[in-house]
């Protein structure tokens, strides 16, 4: 459905995305998760054919973004980051224009505009001037214009940014409704958001892909625990027991080793950095500490800059 190969975009001397490679399958809802400045918007602008990449390619439904940009654009519904709209237009006027620009005939335009208005719950505001609508309603209009013309692929750049909790829930449920029916790529810097609406997550930081995973295992990796790898010389049973006793340690596991030399994987509570204490305990017990290293530090760094919690009003399932 979407195949991205070595995509790179350089602005002047700033590399915004660096050699991205990933694929998105038909009907998948994929989250593009990363802190501000990670390169999410840049990737989406390239995929939607707003701007060409500096190098690399992407294929959308088999069409190349370089040579078949119009074909690609016919198949994509795009919602840019700040949801730009013509504020002087009424909802219907605006959607009519979008339908024309997307090449819908007069007859099908009337029908399709009606459909997206229903679908995005805009019925009561169809004759309103867009400039007078609340942010949540504007976001629905943005989503409606992306949906118009039934594109098989939706690219949504931070679709819930700046909305209040009630509006966030509405928009997310509209996106969830599309699952299976369309391929969706949405970007966000909010961790719970991907768990709620996405089947797969691509984590990006500093223009590079840091991890690709399901939201469940990702949340597990990120939210519940931090892992530290140790390489210790000493009696494995005693060491395991001693480490387990420490406050904040959730799990201790021996991974490999022979004789007195073993590797340990220690899972600790998220908020606590036990590295210093672990070192003290090991050395204090007279064992030999050969190595102490946090696991997946790059992911950790990303995590620090993400929004990981939301008010209960948002996270409650609908």
């Amino acid at each position: 459905m979407i195949e991205v190969q070595g995509l790179t975009k350089v602005y002047g001397n700033k590399t915004a995305i660096d050699n991205l490679t990933f694929t998105v399958e038909q009907g998948e809802v994929v989250g593009f998760l990363g802190p501000n400045g990670a390169g999410k918007t840049t990737t989406m602008r390239v995929l939607s054919c707003f701007m060409p990449p500096s190098s690399g390619t992407a294929k959308v439904n088999g069409y190349d973004i370089h040579t078949q940009a119009l074909e690609v654009r016919r198949r994509i519904g795009y919602l840019p980051e700040h949801n730009p709209l013509y504020t002087d237009f009424t909802v219907t006027q605006y959607l009519n224009f979008v339908g024309e620009a997307k090449g819908l005939s007069r007859l099908s335009r009337r029908q399709k505009v009606g459909e997206v208005i229903e679908r995005c719950l805009l019925h009561d505001t169809r004759e309103w001037i867009i400039g007078r609508l609340s942010k949540g309603y504007r976001q629905r209009v943005g989503l409606a214009q992306a949906l118009l013309g039934d594109p098989p692929i939706l690219i949504l750049d931070e679709p819930t940014i700046g909305l209040d909790p009630k509006q966030i829930i509405e928009i997310r449920s509209l996106i969830q409704d599309m699952q299976g029916e369309r391929t969706v790529i949405l970007s966000t810097h909010i961790l719970p958001e991907v768990s709620m609406v996405c089947q797969r997550v691509i984590i990006i930081n500093g223009g590079r892909i840091v991890a690709v995973d399901t939201p469940e295992s990702l949340t597990h990796r990120l939210q519940r625990s931090t892992q530290v790898r140790l390489h210790i010389e000493g009696p494995p049973d005693q060491i395991t027991d001693r480490l387990r006793e420490m406050a904040g340690v959730l799990r201790v596991e021996t991974t490999d080793g022979a004789g007195a030399l073993h590797r340990y994987l220690v899972e600790t509570e998220k908020e606590r950095d036990l590295r210093q204490e672990l070192a003290r305990v090991v050395c204090g017990s007279g064992w030999g500490l050969l190595e102490l290293r946090p696991v997946d530090m790059s992911l950790e760094e990303v995590f620090i800059h993400l929004v990981t919690e939301e008010p209960d009003s948002v996270t409650v399932d609908r």
Partner: peptide, 14 residues
């Protein structure tokens, strides 16, 4: 400035 050009240029128009 309003960002609407970004959207306009992703519609299937040359």
């Amino acid at each position: 400035k309003q960002g609407t050009l970004e959207l306009l240029l992703t519609y299937p128009v040359r």
